[in-house]
Design a protein around this nucleic acid. Structure first.
Lengths: 141, 141
DNA sequence: GATAAGTGATTGATAATATCAACCATAATA
DNA sequence: TATTATGGTTGATATTATCAATCACTTATC
């Protein structure tokens, strides 16, 4: 039964991952979506960045990013400050509320990662990450 | 810069994969979406199956599957025949047109897989598949 | 310094993906 | 037979995603 192609397996994994994320987010009563979470994480990791940097990292259309950011601003999770280097863009930064939410998210991610990698060795997991990155590089060259 | 979490890496890979699929589908002028393709593949692989089997395999809401199947029927890619075992459900099968489309899809998947796995050994790829499956099992167990 | 081309961001329109709740028909069971 | 469960459909709605047009500003070129 050749439905087990390499691509199907990956799609299944990511789908299961998203469902888990969704469940945990709901359980914590966090009124937020997956893309919002990724956006908040990126802004935090980069310390401060612009909308186009987020778009470039996520490889998404800038229109989508604009809307994503607007929702986060409306929820008081991030702020937009003037970018001294370029009057067209603004620097994004997490608010206190955003930082607090991020902490909860990190907890969820840790839980899911533990569940997902149960019984697997460090080497196996690290190897998996490296292959994942290489596959992505090959596709995006 | 810890944006390279395990989850982010996976999301990136699948996103890149979907973009490649989309590009190839457009280039061939196939007027079809990613979920339609997966649905057609499943029906073909199972030989014949019902809507709820598709829903179960894809882990999707049955409402989504109904609409997916309706689109495929409208495009004359699959047919619905009476299920002798259960009057509530119907057996799905690919039409000639569906089989022809599937061949084109298989070609695209092969191309993408080649590109993605360029320079990687059989063992590495097989190991990756196994880990992917195990991670999924751990999440859905 | 003026002009042209490029980049950052926003808005409108729209498609694809996804779920929930209500519902009908049929099946399984108690 | 009455109840419960399952297969499937429909309506409503949210999320994710892209394209095209546009405005503001920046950079490059003349």
């Amino acid at each position: 039964m050749p439905t087990n192609t390499s691509l199907e397996n990956l799609f299944h994994l990511v789908h299961a991952l998203k469902q888990q994320m969704h469940r945990h987010i709901e359980e914590l009563g966090l009124n937020i979506t997956a893309m919002h979470i990724r956006t908040i994480s990126i802004i935090n990791d980069k310390g401060s960045c612009t909308a186009s940097e987020v778009a470039s990292f996520l490889q998404r259309d800038k229109a989508q990013i604009t809307r994503l950011l607007n929702a986060l601003i409306k929820d008081d999770l991030i702020t937009k400050e003037n970018n001294p280097d370029d009057k067209r863009s603004q620097c994004l930064r997490l608010t206190e509320k955003g930082l607090h939410l991020l902490k909860q998210i990190k907890g969820i991610e840790k839980t899911i990662f533990k569940m997902m990698s149960n019984g697997m060795s460090e080497e196996t997991l690290e190897g998996f990450q490296q292959v994942t990155k290489q596959l992505t590089r090959n596709l995006t060259g």
